[in-house]
Amino acid sequence: MMQIIGKSAELQLEKDVSTRYLPVVIAAMIFLAALAIGGLFSLSNAISDWSATLTGNLTVEIAFDPTADLDKKVTDAVELLSKTPGVAAARAIEQEETLKLLEPFLGRNAALGDLPIPRLIEVIIDEDSAIDLAALNEKLGEAVAGARLDIHRPWLDKMVLLGRSVQILAAAIMLLIGAVTVIIVIFAVRTGLIMHAEVIQVLHLIGARDQYIAEQFQNYFARLSFLGALPGLIVAIIVMFIFNFLVGSLEASMLPPLSLGVEGIIALLLLPLMVALLTRFTVRRVVLGSLERMM
């Protein structure tokens, strides 16, 4: 490992003033990248949760009709749903329970009993069942007048679209961070090549291959990037913990806490290694390209 990320034996790149602040820049870049990854994976997990929850749980709504026997309609609908393959359970939601759901919006003292409130049935779908919800909705409407299956699809679609848009934005931020990092590294390497042109010429004249010189640059810069990435990542993780703590301390928060999942944590931990590899690859290309222009 020391051989890979070791010091530059002949070129003494460690003494360059031009590269002294590179780890600080890399740390800032990694901090932003880690936050972007946090957002990316948290949103991805949130979208999966919404989809799973709303696909597995459906609601049947029976429209209010003062002339009809709503209790009979509810019983018929529950019976039909219970017999439908793929439906794990169908439960009629009591009137009191429905009214309780409205309490936060209308107040406890409102005359809820006088409102034309529809009757609701909670339906739970079997996992892995391939139930045709459109056909079920049609069948239900024919059997029970005024019954409608609310599959939450339009709302869910909008939420997923919003989530995916934010994900694309986060990915674009990641790409931008990567591009800026590459450009900064290119500038630093070119400065190093100019500063060490004389030693590079001596190394060439005593028989050094371009790869020998490039290795000194790529090892040194990869080490700088890796060492800069670590504090950036640590600070980002601390910020995420603080964010989750603040979100957790708010009651009924509109903001979900950051939840990266295993993939997100792995991506986060791989970040310093990835930036070191990106730096190594970039430096090698720049140095070999520049040396080729010399004899």
Partner: peptide, 9 residues
């Protein structure tokens, strides 16, 4: 270019 180091040695 790859032949130069051997020549320079």
């Amino acid at each position: 270019r790859d032949d130069l180091p051997a020549m320079r040695r």
